[in-house]
Structure formats: C-alpha cells, structure tokens
C-alpha cells in the first residue's frame, strides 16, 4: 500500500479524469442544445422559404412535404421494409467481409512468403473503387439481396485484410522475443501476442468498413434491385419526388449512425485496456 502512496500518479490521474468527465457532461449538454437549435433554424428557414416562394419545392423538397411522405411511407410499411433490406444486406456483407478479411490478414503473419506474393494484388484491389465491380456482381448473383451482400463483402474484405496484416507488422519484436524466451510455440505467440496486439487495427478497419459497405450496397441498389433504401432514393429521384429522396437519405444517415455507435460499443468491450488513454 505504501507503494500506492509513493506513486501518486495513479491517484492524480483518477481525480483529473473525474473532473474531465463532469466538464465533458456539461459541454455535451450545451453542444447538443446548440446543435438542435441550429437544425431547427435551418428547417424553419427552409419551410418559410418554400412558403414565401424563394425556394422551389419541386427541386429542393420541403420539410412539411418530407414529413408527409415519411408518414405515408411509415404507415404503408414500405420504409421499414426498405430499411430492413438495406440494413440486412449491409450488415451481413460487412460482417462477413470484415471478419473473414481480418482472419486472413492475421493468418498471413504465419507466412511471409505468401504475404509477399499476394501483396501487389491486394494493393491493386484496395485501390480499385469496389463499385466498379457492381455490374459484374449483379450479373453473377442477380438483382436480389445476395448480390448486395456480395458487394458489401468485396468492399470490406480487402480493407480488413490489409489493415490486419499491417497491424501484425507493427508488433514490437521484443514482445515476440519475450514469448520465445519463455518457450512459447508459434501458435502461442499468435494467440497471445499477434492477435490481441492487432485487435485495435482490426477494430479501426471495422469502423471504416461501415462506410464502405454502405456505399457498395447502395451503389448496387442504384444499378439493379427490387427493394432497399438505395432503390427507393433512385426511383424517387428519377420521378423528381425530392421529398421521398430526402426521406431515404435521412433514413440512411440514421442507419449509418446506429451502426457506428454499435461498433464503438463493441470496441469498448473488446479493448478495455485502451480506456485509460481516452
């Protein structure tokens, strides 16, 4: 216990954090008030502009119109169906691509020569805008949900693979030497050092991949599909029904935020040791 008192660092760090948290709570509240006020102002000015005739609702849509369409789409169940379809394809493709990609990237640690050989292909694939593959993938897998899942998969797989693989390269050589000196096998080095040390890289790839999966999925729906928010936006846009386009865009934003929050929560759960840094 005398050690604890000697090293006041721990105690001080704790109290500073408490103050920070209190401060953060207060700023968060005022920040949110300002955000809400700003948003309300824009919406009110927009509606006034439409009513007075400064803004053409045919080209821009109007808040009242958007609300009306949203209500109609919610009541008919179409919004829910389209959202479910989009979220389902995005999440399945995202999870499959990110998890498999991360596993492959981690496993590349075992073989430097395999990694070296496939490296240029991975870099080329990574640079390719994955949406360019959409026409092909739709031809192969049809215009249903499965082609959208595949698109999200392709868009996320390479990012996750490269990120995990790069993560394995950043590991402190000394940690691996320490394991060796303790008599650890290669498999133990992998499970006890390589995998946990790479986890922060994997999580950050997951975070990026939410965006990539959504882009690929919506892009796929634009090209050919029978349901989903992307299709809803695309069809409404062609009909110059800007209010419905807005409903779709807002819904997509909500989906993106929810997915992002989920990944952040998972991150907190999986990386408890990173808490002290924040």
């Amino acid at each position: 216990m005398s050690e604890a008192q000697l090293h006041t660092h721990v105690i001080r760090a704790g109290s500073v954090k408490e103050n920070d948290e209190q401060l953060a709570g207060n700023t968060l509240l005022t920040d949110n008030l300002w955000r809400g006020a700003g948003l309300a102002l824009v919406i009110i000015l927009w509606q006034i502009g439409v009513n007075v005739g400064w803004i053409n609702p045919f080209l821009m849509g109007s808040p009242v119109g958007i609300a009306g369409e949203a209500w109609r789409l919610i009541q008919s169940g179409q919004l829910l169906n389209d959202t479910i379809a989009t979220v389902y394809a995005t999440v399945v493709g995202f999870l499959a691509g990110s998890i498999l990609g991360s596993i492959c990237g981690l496993l590349l640690w075992f073989s430097r020569s395999v990694a070296r050989i496939i490296d240029p292909f991975m870099v080329a694939l990574n640079g390719l805008p994955k949406i360019a593959l959409a026409p092909m993938i739709i031809i192969w897998f049809g215009s249903g949900m499965f082609s959208k899942i595949m698109l999200a998969f392709v868009a996320t797989f390479v990012v996750a693979l490269l990120s995990a693989y790069q993560g394995t390269h950043q590991i402190d050589r000394n940690l691996i030497n320490l394991m060796r000196s303790l008599g650890a096998s290669r498999r133990e080095v992998f499970t006890k050092v390589v995998a946990p040390a790479t986890l922060p890289w994997i999580i950050s790839a997951f975070r990026l991949n939410i965006g990539f999966a959504l882009i690929a999925e919506i892009g796929g729906e634009f090209i050919s599909s029978d349901r989903g928010l992307g299709r809803m936006i695309f069809v409404a846009g062609n009909l110059f029904n800007l209010n419905v386009v807005w409903v779709g865009v807002i819904m997509l934003m909500i989906v993106a935020i929810v997915l992002y929050v989920i990944v952040s929560q998972v991150e907190k759960r999986l990386l408890p040791w990173e808490k002290g840094h924040k």
């Binding site: 000394n174 320490l178 000196s181 133990e188 006890k192 946990p196 040791w273």
Partner: peptide
C-alpha cells in the same frame, strides 16, 4: 533464461496479474 529490458514489455491488453502469469501459462 529470464530477462528484463529497459522497456517493461508488459502486454497492455493483459491485467497485471495476467501479465505476471504469462510464463506460467506457457509452461
């Protein structure tokens, strides 16, 4: 041979007790 370097090489993802246990775990 057990060794100790300038850098403590504690695994940041392990708690103190799990760090201490590392060698025993491998054994």
């Amino acid at each position: 041979v057990g060794y100790m370097l300038q850098r403590d090489l504690l695994f940041p993802w392990r708690t103190i007790i799990d760090n201490v246990c590392l060698g025993l775990e491998i054994q």
